[in-house]
């Protein structure tokens, strides 16, 4: 049966094509990523005779994973270009298949590449030269840097930029960053207004002035019966920003891909 919506066979072909088409870029990136820990070690040894600290290496790994993860949609910079985009849009595969492959590349392959090559190279140096370097940055990253809120925020940013990359045709990066700032500003204003309205209606009367809302230990849907109004509000906001908004961006991106004209 000729399935025009989704076929794993075509997804596999698309995935393979993406890597074949960009093999040089991937190779260059992996070499640079794998070489960075060696460079750090050399610089540290030559300049201060000290070793790069585990905290620095872990932070750097987290920063690189974050940047690559969030900005990976620009890997598909030309998808909606009126001329250059034809090679993608006219390729015999469904929009859903193309969308899934693009999401997989951005959400899985791009951060995985950093973790494997940057984290792997760091781990290899530690394993081979324990005298010069202490601890594994990748283990420290997974144990201390990977928080639920961090992942949700990165997911929101990725989907927002994925959408922006398909929405804007020219000067994408500039326009994306500008709209990102404007939308953040607007969301902050809206939140402030909602808090003010809630406050004026007495929702926060029972809330202590110096209480803190600890959400890091909670899952996104962990509501408790005794939660005060502020906690409930922050939790709801968290679900909206971390789950609802990214899903809306995903639906918007898919719709743009499906209806884009060239």
């Amino acid at each position: 049966m000729n399935n025009n919506i989704f076929q794993f066979n075509r997804v596999g072909k698309l995935f393979r094509r993406t890597f074949q088409q960009n093999s040089k870029t991937f190779l260059n990136n992996t070499l640079v990523l794998a070489g960075l820990p060696i460079l750090f070690l050399l610089i540290a040894r030559l300049t201060s005779n000290e070793v790069p600290s585990l905290l620095f290496r872990s932070n750097f790994l987290a920063f690189t994973v974050g940047v690559i993860f969030i900005f990976s949609p620009f890997f598909y910079y030309f998808y909606n270009h009126p001329k250059k985009g034809l090679s993608e849009v006219m390729l015999p595969a469904s929009v859903l298949e193309k969308f899934v492959v693009m999401q997989m590349v951005c959400m899985i392959s791009a951060p995985l590449m950093v973790l494997v090559f940057l984290g792997g190279s760091d781990a290899l140096i530690t394993a081979l030269f324990p005298k010069y370097q202490d601890g594994y940055a990748i283990a420290h990253f997974f144990n201390n840097r990977l928080t639920t809120d961090g992942v949700l925020l990165a997911f929101l940013s990725l989907q927002a930029l994925f959408f922006a990359n398909l929405f804007f045709v020219r000067r994408k990066i500039l326009k994306s960053i500008a709209s990102f700032l404007v939308i953040n500003f607007l969301i902050s204003i809206i939140i402030l207004v909602i808090i003010k309205v809630m406050e004026s209606r007495g929702y926060f009367d029972a809330v202590s002035c110096n209480m803190s809302v600890q959400l890091n230990d909670r899952g996104p849907f962990e509501f408790y019966a005794g939660d005060n109004a502020l906690t409930m509000f922050v939790m709801t906001l968290r679900i909206f920003m971390g789950i609802v908004l990214p899903i809306l961006f995903m639906i918007g991106s898919y719709r743009l891909m499906k209806t884009n004209r060239y």
Binding site: N4, Q21, H81, S87, M90, P92, A93, S94, E97
Partner: peptide
């Protein structure tokens, strides 16, 4: 609708060939 079965049966060659001028 740009279905895969439709796209595999046609080939459109535009006047400007930027879509093909890759580093390969």
């Amino acid at each position: 609708k740009r279905t895969p079965s439709f796209l595999s049966r046609i080939f459109y060659l535009p006047e400007e060939l930027e879509f093909i001028q890759n580093d390969c």
